[in-house]
Design a protein around this nucleic acid. Structure first.
Length: 304
DNA sequence: CATGCGTGGAC
DNA sequence: TGTCCAAGCAT
């Protein structure tokens, strides 16, 4: 849950998840719908699918016991170098650095490490430098302490104070270039996309389609979404394809993903389509939903 | 290796 | 408003 997600956001999800599925066996045997309900709104949904895969691996290949080395942990789905090192150091006292965004930042600043952390090969550079620094007696505490340092005194926008105990060890601070570390190259900018979300009602039920089983929001149900080239093209487009198309929102419903920015128009139509599935409100409520779909649903209620 | 994958917080 | 980033990983 903590992969690319802040601790404060995770806590309520974590508590609910563990109270519903307290053991590895429970997780391994759970229905996907139950899993996604517990994860709904947290994002990066492949994480929970991978976690169940990992639980099944643990039951089948490790006799129900989590493997205890960072190397063997990485054979589990969804557990990469960071998570494996975190588990191994905290739970099994393996002397290994848990290289997350915080640790990259803290050591890049302290030691003026100029490797670009956006490049995968930089992981080895940091690993080789930090490994001999990890406290061999308390590697788990060392890792958690560095992460705590990274979220407090050395967060992205925090500069070291002159009376900080770290000031005289912090090479980048000593030279006044602290906030230029870590070095991180730019990512590509996000793509704009325009959709009509089709509202088609039949006998109290609304139309939905299931998203493809791979890719963005895999397998989730949404109102049928039709893509257009621009915001202006949507209304003309749906008017050609549907009867009595009625635009429900004037301003776009905006939803931002990591690499995409969506503008969505709700369009009520009289048509039905064989490819759509009509679900009653009761049936819809049992399904896990994404934040995008919940946003569209809220906008629909406001505009009807 | 580069890219895709969600959502919310902070500024 | 836009921008960056968060206890990263799979492909």
């Amino acid at each position: 849950m903590l992969q690319q997600t802040q601790v404060e956001t995770v806590i309520p999800y974590y508590e609910r998840f563990l109270s519903e599925l307290p053991t590895v066996k429970d997780l391994a045997e759970a229905d996907e719908e139950v899993l996604l309900k517990l994860w709904s709104g947290l994002g990066y949904y492949s994480r929970v699918r991978n976690m169940q895969k990992a639980a099944r691996q643990v039951m089948a290949d490790f006799d129900g016991q989590l493997p205890s080395t960072s190397q063997s942990l990485q054979s589990l789905a969804g557990i990469g170098p960071y998570t494996a090192a975190a588990i191994a150091s905290i739970s099994f006292n393996e002397v290994v650095p848990a290289l997350d965004g915080n640790m990259f930042r803290v050591f890049a600043r302290l030691l003026k490490i100029e490797a670009d952390i956006a490049q995968p090969k930089s992981r080895k550079t940091f690993y080789d430098i930090i490994l001999p620094i990890v406290d061999p007696e308390r590697p788990g505490d060392f890792n958690q302490a560095v992460m705590d340092l990274g979220t407090s005194l050395m967060s992205t926008k925090t500069e070291t104070l002159s009376d900080s105990p770290f000031a005289r060890f912090n090479l980048s601070y000593q030279e006044g270039v602290e906030l230029t570390f870590p070095i991180k190259s730019k990512k590509v900018k996000q793509v704009q996309k325009f959709y009509a979300a089709i509202i088609s009602e039949n006998d109290g039920s609304l139309a939905y389609t299931q998203r493809p089983k791979t890719g963005l929001l895999a397998n989730f149900w949404t109102y049928p979404l039709l893509e257009f080239d621009s915001w202006d093209a949507i209304y003309d487009g749906v008017s050609e394809h549907f009867e009595a198309a009625k635009q429900l929102n004037i301003t776009p419903i905006t939803h931002i993903f990591t690499h995409q920015k969506w503008q969505v128009m709700l369009v009520q139509v009289e048509n039905e389509d064989a490819s759509w599935t009509y679900l009653s409100d009761d049936a819809y409520e049992t399904l896990p939903q994404t934040t995008l779909q919940l946003k569209l649903q809220a906008a629909l209620r406001e505009n009807l």
